[in-house]
């Protein structure tokens, strides 16, 4: 009887503690994918959000608290992207290894020069990020910066596998810089292309490929497009025509389609993160797919 009860309890709770491997809690899919690239089979990666989820609006769900409890390392974006849920999850989980300030808490934006720092800090401006734009995954060179820091953090926290992490990092970094060179070559014709964005979430992508953002469909970051604002965008496009309108996979493209019906503009749905489209299966195919979709949209 007692063994049956024990079996039921264990089956219900799962086997988090039983795993000997190094547990990584990644807040968004790009860091989950990067941690997997660098950690290989020595780590067990849990990604807290799905690629079709707005990373600004995540709830402190029970499943997240349970995973944060057993994590050895939390990999977050930082720059207040996760401010609405991660502090609460970490506090409730009570895992002192991964509290902010501990070695087990890693923020990617700490290793990347941030763009898009707001000139006016006021909530009347919508969802502004005081420290700068946190969507750094738009530029693969940022992934390289974060990868270097994350590899060192892995080695620091799991010293038994230092050699393993170093060789995986060196292998990844070599393939990554080769891939960046290839993408930059492929995307060269995109330089100077005028684009419209639905949400101001492509700052780093634009900086990387030299795209020119002429308008945003959201009147203020995080606010739904309104008809009056869309009319203004139409007027802007008459003066400054753009090739395409960029929409992240997690957003509805209704407003973009509305615009496309009235102008000769292509709606380009971008994966935004790993898993955002069927083709974006890992970090490499994520950028590959992004570049291909942009080239198709500009054609």
């Amino acid at each position: 009887m007692r063994s049956i009860l024990r079996f039921i309890v264990l089956a219900w709770l799962g086997t988090g503690a039983a795993h000997a491997s190094f547990n990584i809690f990644a807040t968004v899919p790009e860091w989950g994918a990067l941690a997997q690239e660098l950690g290989g089979d020595k780590v067990r990666v849990y990604t807290a959000t799905s690629p079709l989820q707005d990373p600004h609006h995540v709830q402190a769900k029970p499943s997240l608290i349970a995973r944060a409890r057993t994590a050895d390392l939390v990999v977050a974006t930082g720059a207040e992207l996760e401010v609405g849920w991660l502090p609460l999850v970490l506090q409730q989980a009570g895992n002192d290894k991964v509290q902010p300030g501990a070695p087990g808490y890693f923020e990617a934006t700490a290793y990347v020069p941030l763009l898009g720092k707001p000139t006016r800090l006021d909530r009347a401006e919508g969802d502004v990020h005081p420290q700068g734009d946190p969507h750094i995954q738009g530029d693969p060179r940022n992934i390289a910066r974060v990868a270097e820091a994350l590899a060192q953090r892995l080695a620091q926290l799991d010293p038994g596998n230092v050699a393993y992490y170093r060789s995986r990092y060196q292998d990844f970094a070599a393939r990554w810089s080769a891939a960046i060179a290839k993408w930059q070559q492929e995307a060269a014709p995109l330089h100077g292309t005028a684009v419209v964005v639905q949400h101001k979430g492509f700052t780093y992508l634009e900086a990387w490929l030299g795209l020119k953002e002429v308008a945003a469909l959201e009147p203020k970051p995080g606010m739904e497009p309104t008809t009056s604002h869309l009319a203004e965008v139409l007027a802007t496009l008459q003066r400054e025509p753009a090739k395409m309108v960029l929409v992240a996979a997690y957003q509805s493209d209704q407003a973009s389609q509305w615009l496309a019906q009235r102008t000769k503009i292509h709606v380009v749905k971008l994966p935004f993160t790993v898993g955002g489209t069927d083709a974006a299966k890992d970090l490499f195919s994520f950028y590959e797919d992004t570049v291909q979709r942009l080239l198709k949209g500009a054609a």
Partner: peptide, 25 residues
């Protein structure tokens, strides 16, 4: 930041791990 940016722009993603640990901003 400038020197980092310059270094990165000059050699996107240096393949070998650099000796100095990356420091948070």
């Amino acid at each position: 930041a400038k020197s980092q940016a310059a270094a990165i722009a000059a050699a996107p993603a240096a393949p070998a791990a650099s000796a100095a640990p990356p420091t948070p901003a």
